[in-house]
């Protein structure tokens, strides 16, 4: 395995979403995720990065390599200091949206990964962390 084990990426504009997709793709390849799993993880992080930009007013992402025994994985975490999510259950429902998306961002991203953590507080911000492991 070569390359950095961790990368911090600011999310302030459209092209940062593309940059995050590229970084996550390269980490997923290094972690030897299958092509389908790479695509799932990159798609999930694209949704989450856009959420951070659109609803959180921008923020930052951290992408990390994980190693656990023989298994390798990628963790990506998206943090903003935006308004937070008042009703988590509602926000995780398919079809619910407060913005320009299709309401699949959070619920869809959760289905595409192995681990999904949502930490949010109204007025403080939101952090979403996802992990995908090699099989």
């Amino acid at each position: 395995m070569t390359g950095p084990g961790r990368e911090d990426i600011p999310i302030a504009a459209d092209d940062d979403v593309v940059r995050i997709r590229q970084v996550v793709r390269s980490y997923a390849q290094r972690a030897r995720l299958s092509l389908v799993d790479q695509t799932k993880l990159v798609t999930a992080t694209s949704e989450l990065a856009r959420n951070t930009l659109t609803y959180g007013g921008g923020g930052s992402a951290v992408v990390e390599m994980l190693g656990e025994g023989r298994r390798q994985g990628v963790r990506a975490s998206f943090a903003d200091s935006g308004p937070g999510i008042p009703d988590i259950e509602l926000a995780l429902t398919d079809g619910w949206t407060s913005g320009r998306g299709m309401g699949l961002g959070l619920s869809g991203a959760r289905r595409l990964v192995d681990e999904f953590t949502l930490d949010t507080e109204v007025g403080r911000g939101t952090t979403v962390t996802v992990v995908k492991w090699s099989r």
């Binding site: 092509l35 389908v36 790479q38 695509t39 799932k40 299709m102 699949l104 869809g108 595409l112």
Partner: peptide, 12 residues
């Protein structure tokens, strides 16, 4: 194919 599989799981 990987895009198609992902779209279905995403619910799109």
């Amino acid at each position: 194919p990987a895009v198609a599989i992902t779209l279905v799981e995403l619910g799109l």
